[in-house]
Design a binder for these strands. Structure first.
Length: 587
RNA sequence: GGGGUCGUGGUGCAGCUGGUUUAGCACACUGGCCUGUCAAGCCAGAGGUCGCGGGUUCGAGCCCCGUCGGCCCCGCCA
């Protein structure tokens, strides 16, 4: 017999009192009072209390058979609870369902953990029993949030004329960048497809195809080591548009973010989102993804340092280095131990040490305070009484990046972020290349299918480090959430860029021939961006691990505890693919 | 590839400097009592090769080596 429910477990209210209802769901908890039994029935929408009363059509002994996570159907009548018995913690708490028939739809073996928000299970166990973990209301909310946000993205971009287009998952291997996952080809034995690191090349080709505006919520796959915010497969909102400018991209994306935040519960965000150049981000925050929820900007105190009594500073300046400082409001209260911790942070980032002093009324205390004039230092560092001034002397890159790390530590300690504070920021004008000390060669700083600024193209061959490009990132609270660029649509210029990073002539054709070929058939000027979708949802939800917004994530070693992948396969299957395993590396 | 940290009944943890312990606690589980509970309560009970392998020792949950796995970080991730 076919059965169906009349309501969900989150639906019944006092208006329904007196009505007949059929609910189906999971037994959350049974409270056996001896003479009366309560069953909390739960589904995605909520929880409703079912009452089994003595002398009623359902025997108490039958009700007692139901255990946690059994699947049940309850037919009954909705009844208003007496005022003092209402449960304000439940949305359905003003009513209860008086059972007239209780049907066992399925049993459940004893669950390894209790299915509720404050579970005590470790993440390992949660992943192994992910189907139970995902039943927890908290996880269901995250799944819902992700769905709603995706809906906003589709509506917003569709309204702006973007087409949702799928690109292939079986693609050509690309030796650039991250390691590819390989897929052996049965039909072409000994050859391999790759799983795409991103749809980058395909979306550019769609622009050449005249699609004009494209988007996709795309799976990206990278065979690299994992982190809390990195999974081997993850999702991007991938976007590309033709005949566009950086300003237009920013404008549309500002609107997209505002729509997601407003409609998916993050609140209003102010647009336009501010823009700073990469150079400015590095100079002020020592990072290309600044957290601007607090100030503590980096100051250049080289001039003062050069005149100071502090010999270590003078030596660095004379050697062509620089001295930078941060004034941390209220930082004078930090203990010596905490300051040592900051120095440790600076050293890990390459600094030789961290000079510091406390600012009090009319004088400098502790650390290197005695080498400096109170007035001069507070003016140069922008410090006030009660501040801690921290300083690093080094080459510019080291000074900025180490102070950038120290700044984040100071921010966490002195200006702890409040939930719901979302500070978006565009960072643009990235350098096109960066020098790789180990490989002793130029490498693409972001990616190389990008248009350099016109007035710097002439330095491509002579001084690549001087060339900046129309590259941009969006950051949110110090996390990079999107990255994109205005692309290079001229195949000759693209070849020049490739040759700077050592991909020349035939090699360029072999690796990227199909893109270069497409570009030479009338490619329109175009550009785009890709958002890290999992990170974005994590931030929107106020979480800290992308594993919580991915229904079936892998562990940090790329394993899936629930299904046991990756796994061995039959010899036969390998033979079909023309593969044979090498013996495992012996000791 | 490297570093840190953790691994003890179903789950989460405690277990000191190696020996008075029969490996303890909470939750979950099983049985009993209870007619208004909602983190129900009370009583009783069952449940452990201390991740795995080796070593040191009269004696190892505890020390050493290796290994597997979880988490975090560096490298890596155009």
């Amino acid at each position: 017999m076919e059965r169906s429910r009349t309501h969900t477990c989150g639906e019944l209210r006092k208006e329904h009192a007196g009505e007949a209802a059929v609910l189906m769901g999971w037994v959350h908890r049974v409270r056996d009072q001896g003479g009366i039994v309560f069953i909390d029935l739960r589904d995605r929408y909520g929880t409703t209390q079912v009452v089994v009363e003595p002398g009623g059509p359902v025997s108490l002994d039958v009700a007692r058979e139901f255990k946690r996570e059994y699947v049940a159907e309850v037919r009954g009548t909705v009844r208003l609870r007496p005022e003092e018995m209402a449960n304000r913690n439940l949305q359905t708490g003003e009513v209860e369902l008086v059972a007239e028939e209780l049907v066992l739809l399925n049993r459940c073996v004893t669950p390894p953990f209790v299915v509720e928000d404050d579970t005590d299970a470790s993440e390992e166990i949660r992943l192994q029993y992910r189907f139970l973990d995902l039943r927890r209301p908290k996880m269901q909310k995250l799944i819902e949030l992700r769905h709603h946000a995706a809906g906003v993205v589709r509506r917003y971009l569709s309204d702006k004329g973007f087409l949702e287009i799928e690109t292939p998952l079986l693609v050509r291997n690309s030796p650039e960048g991250a390691r590819d996952f390989l897929v052996p080809s049965r039909l072409s034995k000994g050859k391999f497809y790759s799983l795409p690191q991103s749809p980058q090349i395909y979306k550019q080709i769609l622009m050449v195809s005249g699609c004009d505006r494209y988007f996709q919520i795309a799976k990206c796959l990278r065979d690299e080591d994992l982190r809390a915010d990195r999974q081997p497969e993850f999702s991007q909102i991938d976007i590309e548009l033709s005949f566009t400018t950086e300003g237009e991209v920013f404008d549309i994306m500002d609107g997209l973010l505002a729509a997601i935040w407003k409609e998916a519960g993050g609140g209003d965000i102010s647009t336009p989102i501010p823009v700073i150049s990469h150079a400015e981000a590095m100079a002020k925050y020592g990072s290309d993804k600044p957290d601007i929820r607090f100030g503590m900007e980096i100051q250049d105190i080289s001039e003062l340092a050069a005149r100071s009594e502090f010999r270590a500073f003078r030596a660095v300046i004379e050697g062509g280095g620089t001295v930078r400082a941060i004034a941390a409001p209220g930082g004078a209260s930090l203990s010596r131990r905490e300051i040592d911790g900051l120095e440790e942070t600076a050293k890990r980032a390459g600094a030789k040490g961290l000079a510091w002093c406390r600012v009090s009324e009319g004088k400098l205390d502790g650390g290197v305070g005695r080498f400096f004039d109170h007035e001069a230092l507070t003016a140069a560092a922008g410090a006030s009484t009660g501040d801690l001034v921290v300083m690093v002397a080094a080459d510019e890159k080291t000074a900025l990046s180490s102070l950038g790390q120290v700044r984040l530590a100071l921010g966490g300690r002195l200006a702890p972020p409040s939930a719901g504070d979302f500070r978006f920021l565009w960072v643009n004008r990235f350098p096109l290349f960066e020098w790789d000390d180990e490989g002793e060669r130029w490498e693409p700083a972001h990616h190389m299918f990008t248009l350099p600024y016109d007035d710097e193209i002439e330095f491509l061959e002579t001084d690549p480090g001087r060339v900046h490009a129309r590259l941009y990132d969006m950051t949110l609270n110090g996390v990079e959430i999107a990255s994109g660029s205005i692309r290079c649509h001229d195949p000759e210029l693209q070849r020049r860029i490739m040759s700077v990073v050592g991909i020349r002539g035939e090699e360029a054709d072999r690796r990227f021939g199909f893109l270069l070929n497409a570009l030479s058939y009338g490619a329109p000027p175009h550009g785009g961006i890709a958002f890290g979708w999992d990170r974005l949802i994590t931030l929107l939800a106020g979480g800290d691990s992308i594993r919580d917004v991915i229904p079936f994530p892998k562990t940090t070693s790329g394993l899936s505890p629930m299904d046991g992948s990756p796994s061995d396969v039959e010899e036969e299957l390998l033979a079909d693919l023309g593969l044979r395993l090498l013996p495992r590396k012996e000791d």
